[in-house]
Design a protein around this nucleic acid. Structure first.
Lengths: 211, 211
DNA sequence: CTATTAATGTGAATAATTGTACATAAACCG
DNA sequence: CGGTTTATGTACAATTATTCACATTAATAG
């Protein structure tokens, strides 16, 4: 499964969950196509490749699909994260309610500023960044969210890698790249660059596609 | 210019600005390739297509490139945004320092809760969502950032469109899709789905690519 | 029970993207 | 100055992704 397909699958999964809570039982390739913003042919091809089959004419059973896709996506395993950098963005993420339904949990935050990490008014425990390795050892965590200022980003990145974290979601405007580790593994890094997204929007508004 | 290319161009532009502040004057296709995470061939092809030419052997003049790319990206025009939904994420964005160097400005925030919008401790003025149209009329704004809870997302979306906003950056987990407007134009919508990014990371960790 | 309709599943065609290879021009070196 | 190196610019090849078209199956209706 490649990255584009993975994005689509997670989108399908999301939408299916919603449809299920609404009370639907069956879904057509077309519905999922709409939800994921792709064509129906792609949906069918995706499923076909993943050996997921529906009923001719009847579409797909939502419950079955959720099961199959859930297995593919590794649902059921623990999905714990820590947050590096508890500034405004970091704190916002700690309080974010949207992770729960996906089985994602924030289990700790780290910051270099004592004023920040001594503040107990947050839903997860905060620690000084110096205790990173120690705290991680006692938690089942594989992913870190980096929400530190630009200057601290690559330093934070190296630290979490050294601590054994293998997945990183980076909110700083520096694009962090996977660095081959000593043990031969390659960390997974996703960069979210908010300013870049806005720039793209402004661009597309200024120079609309002509079609 | 297509979307992938646009992303690359904005990345080049970013990196060039950094390199310039460091004091460099020339840059090679290879450097930009590294910065944007693509191959050097693509960088050259991009520039070639955009009629941007460097010096054989000498690489590219950073200043020239910034000028050319800046023009392409529509820099110099105003890039003002408003924020719909001043919860934790909305507030974090208001205070975010990373927009300034890109010429992006947050000029107002909107919320439905009086407790929120009467709080004056923020760097931009806040208004009740009911005053959206009125306030927008007096501001040169074309892009809205939607950072409201899931349930309010599509409603907020419709409202900003009705108010004449043509670009949207959506942080809610609902995927908002461009809706053809009465005047025949299509809004530009970018969705940032944080939970989805994390899910993908967890997936990629669980099922590493075998190569 | 036959005809019709509605959806899936998939091979083939098409389009888009990326990489390769090399000709070309400029700078450098002896 | 000629030879060598370095990096651009681009044609072409390879790969990948998407769409198209249609055979296939199931349900429905008359």
């Amino acid at each position: 499964m490649n990255t584009d397909q993975l994005i689509r699958i997670t989108r399908y999964y999301r939408s299916l969950n919603r449809l299920k809570t609404i009370g639907l039982e069956k879904v057509f390739a077309n519905n999922l196509a709409d939800a994921a913003g792709v064509s129906a042919a792609i949906v069918r091809k995706d499923f076909s490749q993943l050996s997921i089959y529906g009923q001719k004419r009847g579409g797909y059973q939502i419950a079955d699909l959720l099961l199959s896709l859930g297995e593919l996506l590794g649902k059921g395993d623990s999905q714990n994260c820590i947050i590096i950098g508890c500034g405004r963005i970091g704190k916002a993420l700690m309080h974010y309610k949207g992770f729960e339904p996906d089985g994602i949990r924030i289990v700790a935050g780290f910051d270099s500023d004592p004023v920040v990490y001594n503040d107990t008014s947050h839903p997860v425990p905060l620690y000084p960044i110096s205790r990173l390795d120690e705290v991680i050892r006692n938690l089942d965590v594989s992913v870190a969210i980096i929400s530190v200022p630009e200057q601290a980003a690559s330093d934070s990145y190296e630290r979490v890698l050294k601590a054994g974290i293998m997945g990183v979601l980076n909110f700083s405007p520096i694009t962090l790249k996977p660095i081959l580790q000593e043990d031969g593994t390659l960390p997974i890094v996703h960069n979210i660059n908010i300013a870049l997204e806005l720039e793209q929007i402004f661009y597309e508004l200024k120079f609309p596609k002509n079609r």
